[in-house]
Design a protein around this nucleic acid. Structure first.
Lengths: 216, 216
DNA sequence: TAGATTGTTAATCGATTAACAATC
DNA sequence: TAGATTGTTAATCGATTAACAATC
């Protein structure tokens, strides 16, 4: 606890704790939208599939955020976790690659916006798509412009909604442009240098896992 | 090992093992597509973010699948893991809800097909979308038909690509129709009975997590 | 043979769980 | 006060890691 109280410090959280706090934040944000003002560790557990004792333990390491007999104040907890994860009051810019059906769905979604992520650019190679308005004020730009735009806009994350066949090329270009976080919606296995983090979206993995417990 | 050798038995795998095996399978399937015939635990570790020793440990619990100095045969390992996860030679039918941009992207993707999941029905309430061919041989059907189709087709998984505002209603209807696995692409927090598993897709969670380590 | 990588052990670390006093 | 839920401890279980002999 004494060590953990060093929350605002330079100390990095253990991987597991950071991952779980991110999940709590997602649920809390949504609970807030649904008009909830408090939430118990039990409810958080149902939505995150994390053990309720684990949740209380994770949170109590940073302070006494809850109220016994009541639960946690949603607004207050959102603020606290944002502080811990260092995303409070910051905006992080995303560049999206591929303006097909998936790319359009991502550009039009609120899913990133709720956490301070903003899609500031969309790129495609298809001349028919360039100039298309995927969302008010956001038009598809030619892929050739990616390097310049990434630098000008201070893009931190690249999201790949391109065919698997070109995903590696885009990843290489992103790495060369200095982007360190890549979110891969294609099926390709991407090769990147160690300082770059790739997250590949694989809904089938979660489905296989859920199915196993259904079948047994 | 003696206990684990009971792979084909009724014994359920620990949660963590089942989750990791699913991830190995995803990577192996893709590696196979890319023409790889063998893969080392080291490489699997890079793509799955699971420790290489852990991977060897997980696999050796079921048999000696690897070859020292070489690695694992991709085809053979895919077969073995499918057997362990009980998905070998089976087809599992999926019903998709919502034929908007996201729904169309999912229907057109190979991502589920590679693991024996097949989208056998797409539903929407919008009369303009009904009858639309989202992929050869697969047309959008009216939502009102969902119950009948789910029973006829033996649907095991419901995938929600609908607006958050109607997600709970669809989830309730799926539960009533006997579906036990729900994959939620909306942001809604879904209330379901304990026998039903909900997985909510939250790319923002993974992004927050990656960002934390980037910022620190 | 030399190099690489598995299979396996042992030691450490983090997660899970039950239990319950504190307290709202 | 009664009921609910946090904060916290202690015990167990599973994951991680380093190390290395076996062997392809």
């Amino acid at each position: 606890m004494i060590e953990r109280a060093a929350q605002g410090s330079r100390e990095r959280l253990p991987l597991g704790v950071a991952a779980r706090l991110s999940r709590y934040l997602q649920v809390l944000t949504q609970a807030k939208k649904m008009g909830r003002s408090t939430i118990s560790s039990q409810e958080l557990a149902e939505y995150t599939h994390v053990n309720p004792t684990q949740i209380r333990r994770d949170l109590s390491g940073f302070g006494k955020f809850g109220k016994r007999g009541v639960g946690y104040n949603v607004d207050a907890l959102v603020s606290q976790i944002r502080k811990i994860l260092r995303t409070a009051g910051r905006r992080h810019n995303i560049a999206l690659f591929g303006a097909g059906r998936l790319g359009q769905a991502i550009a039009g979604s609120e899913i990133f916006a709720d956490h301070g992520f903003r899609v500031v650019a969309v790129f495609d190679v298809d001349p028919d798509k360039i100039g298309m308005e995927v969302r008010p004020g956001l038009r598809v730009q030619p892929y050739a412009e990616m390097r310049r735009v990434i630098e000008e806009e201070g893009v931190v994350v690249g999201v790949l909604a391109v065919p698997s066949s070109v995903a590696q090329q885009v990843a290489d270009d992103l790495v060369a442009a200095g982007v360190r976080i890549i979110f891969n919606y294609s099926e390709a296995l991407l090769q990147v240098p160690p300082e770059v983090t790739v997250h590949t979206s694989s809904p089938a993995v979660d489905l296989l896992y859920a199915l196993y417990f259904y079948l047994t």
